[in-house]
Design a protein around this nucleic acid. Sequence first.
DNA 1: TCACTATATCAGC
DNA 2: GCTGATATAGTGA
Length: 107
Amino acid sequence: MMYMRFNDRIWSMMRKIPKGKVTSYKELAMSLNCNAYRAVGNACRNNPYAPEVPCHRVVKSNGDIGGFGGEMDGKKVEEKKRLLKKEGVTVKNGKVVDFEKILFKFK
DNA sequence: TCACTATATCAGC
DNA sequence: GCTGATATAGTGA
């Protein structure tokens, strides 16, 4: 399979996300290919790295937290929210406050 | 090729 | 505003 270049790229990009900021799957996808939103999420799910690649700083394009650890029901999602809050990102009702302001764009 | 995925977008209500 | 269906890109089997 052509190696995992996409995943590798995704991880590299996420690694650059500064603390206190977030990005969206869409932004990541757009920076690499264009519409591989799902592929980005896939990369995160297959993320072999843990704290090195802050996958919890990646949220949906509308500011929603999305999922985490493969659980979309909750459970780990609250952990994600907690992590973001701890890093300075305000999360309310499962959504990032001032999402556009703290959105980190690659370019 | 088929099925899966931490999404995005549109239609219907 | 919310729910469901569809589109799209990539990986694994």
